[in-house]
Design a protein around this nucleic acid. Structure first.
Lengths: 226, 226
DNA sequence: CGAATGCTTCGGCTACCATCGAAGTATGAA
DNA sequence: TTCATACTTCGATGGTAGCCGAAGCATTCG
């Protein structure tokens, strides 16, 4: 009855703790196998398989067969943005899966948000780009200015390649720890990949945390000063 | 286990169709009684009462007793933003509560989003304000420039009063029909109230649609030309 | 080919929760 | 005070979905 979108199906998918844990694990950005996701959710393989079917039917995740493994990942950027958004809301209300532990500060400093950089570092990067007139924000959409294109090219990113994709190059994503936006989209993904490829930072295992090396942090802060 | 916010509780609250319908009804921005919400959800009064308790315990809605009535409303702006966000996601996936009917075009043109203007008109207003340099967007946050403050004052809104509140004056909210942002926050609320008080527009009963009078639409478009 | 690994499907169990009828509480009107 | 309205709480029911053991496919490896 009534008009408007139906939010209950999405809610039901996210509403189960096992599925929510799986989705949170996939926010790490890496494709995971059914076994790994079962472990992350704390359920057996059979149960996980059922959940994964439902998540896939609901369009939240996508699978890729590779040999005898089946890798699952979030279906697209939109799902990542949605989840980060709900996480922000939950974090504001103090709904945490555990008491803030030693890993929490690391998460707030720098973490991966599906496929791009989030946390203090992610927010700082976008702030700098906007302040320097390299990224223009317009009603929730973002775009690179000519000076921004030059800056990105100087970092060693092939913008032309990004533009050929159907995905938006620039997007903003609300950061749950900072309550401000950071850069998403294919450019956000490419930047994080660049930092990791250059050895500036590493993903921590079994966590969304990103650890910058001393040298990497120095360079990052030089590139995007406060 | 694990670190990070717990999204499953939010999802579970939204995941039930009856509760989702109630929340959607409350997106109309008006406080509703338990009976009205029961009707909107299509359940009996007792069932509705249980759902309302859970929504309140989860912090999504707040109640205000008034005589023998109990009025329920969304707890705060954040809830409205979250719901509109999820609606946008659901709409993109084609998850609608009914086949798009005659009301649908009206909803896309102008509707209330909890307490502010959304739809084509809402997006156009924010676009105009940003293009004219009256609203500055910065990493997901918005603020009025000096010229913007003058413009708003000219419309007849008491900015000083808005600033004394703890709520942010300017916010952006992702629009599900336009996939772009419109203006939320106390300013967004005040603007919509102004349009209605001036007789430019009316709320449609039992719908989120906003209907502009011919004269009101003329004036609105003059104030915020394409 | 067989054995092993990775995952899905089936069957049955259980627990939870949405639902409603009926009774209870609170506020307002007569 | 008595009745009516608005809502909540209690109790019982039924359906659904999460869960796991076991069996069934599929792929790879030796």
């Amino acid at each position: 009855m009534k008009e408007g979108p139906d939010i209950s199906q999405i809610g039901a998918l996210i509403g189960d703790p096992a599925r929510a844990n799986m989705l949170t694990a996939l926010m790490g950005g890496q494709a995971l196998t059914a076994s790994e996701l079962a472990g992350a959710a704390g359920v057996t393989l059979q149960t996980a398989s059922t959940h994964l079917s439902r998540l896939e039917a609901g369009g939240l995740i996508a699978q890729r067969k590779q040999g005898r493994h089946r890798y699952f990942a979030l279906a697209d950027d939109e799902v990542g943005l949605l989840l980060e958004n709900i996480m922000g809301f939950a974090a504001n209300r103090g709904l945490m899966r555990s008491r803030p532990g030693p890993k929490d500060p690391a998460l707030r400093k720098a973490r991966v948000c599906y496929n791009h950089l989030a946390g203090d570092f992610g927010v700082r990067m976008l702030d700098r780009l906007v302040a320097d007139g390299d990224v223009a924000l317009d009603g929730g959409e973002a775009s690179l200015t000519p000076s921004g294109e030059a800056r990105i090219a100087a970092i060693g990113i092939d913008l032309a390649a990004l533009k050929t994709q159907r995905r938006p190059v620039c997007r903003t994503c609300l950061d749950w720890s900072e309550r401000r936006s950071h850069l998403a989209g294919s450019l956000g993904e490419a930047l994080l990949a660049r930092f990791i490829a250059d050895g500036w930072a590493k993903r921590e295992k079994d966590s969304r945390a990103i650890r910058f090396t001393a040298e990497g942090e120095r360079r990052f802060l030089a590139l995007f000063p406060e």
